[in-house]
Write a protein that binds this DNA or RNA. Structure first.
Lengths: 113, 113
DNA sequence: TAGTTATATGCCTGTCAAGGAATGTAGGAC
DNA sequence: GTCCTACATTCCTTGACAGGCATATAACTA
């Protein structure tokens, strides 16, 4: 593995990884559980978890044969910090914006991949 | 162009596009200005702007031969909404977190591409 | 209209990230 | 030790995406 560091932004570009973060935020989970929840194969989930681990977004502990993953939210501060000046930019017209959000929220679920 | 819709998360994965948003947030800019600021070629900037435009993150107006781009922040609400539950997750230990952020902030600038 | 400025877009190439299939590795029970 | 469960990793393929170069398109002026 070379010196390439994957930024939080890149990590979060992948919808399945965001979904994984949602799940491990709620509670610690094993790879198998995540795979079942996502209806994905174990190897692909493992690969995503590796990316998340290396980005510092999850931590893992071993419990018998299982590995349990939990959220480590610190790297998301970068995202929050980037977003901060944009919050000022949408200060007005919040009703309109929230309606926009509701329509955007459907996009990831509708997109085949 | 097929039905593929690029999510905000995917759009923001590209550091140059984030940089473009920073610039057009500050003030309206032409393609040429952005290209100069980014030290990138005009066609590549144009392509990024197309992605941003199609994601609804920028708006354009024509001024003589120039196109001036400005920020449209509404789609970022999706990002903010996604991030909201994670803010609760990092509530404690904020000093440590901010130090983490400072070190993260160097990553994009250091990474060759 | 021709000429100029500004930008969008098409074509091409190279890189990379995702998943599938197979297999290696780790932890435990008997 | 063998066998089982759980997961990580490798190898390979494929599609997406970024930039470079060339050119088409848009807007304006004389």
């Amino acid at each position: 593995m070379l010196d390439r560091v994957t930024s939080v932004f890149e990590v979060l570009a992948e919808p399945r990884r965001r979904r994984i973060l949602d799940l491990v935020r709620a509670e610690e989970r094993s790879v198998g559980e995540l795979a079942a929840e996502l209806e994905a194969s174990q190897p692909s989930v493992s690969k995503h978890l590796r990316v998340l681990r290396e980005a510092g977004l999850v931590e893992v502990r071993v419990a018998e044969q299982r590995r349990l993953y939990r959220l480590r939210p610190e790297p998301l501060l970068e995202l929050d910090a980037w977003l901060a000046p944009y919050r000022a930019a949408w200060g007005a017209g919040l009703d309109r914006l929230e309606r926009h959000l509701a329509s955007m929220d459907d996009l990831d679920h509708r997109r085949p991949r």
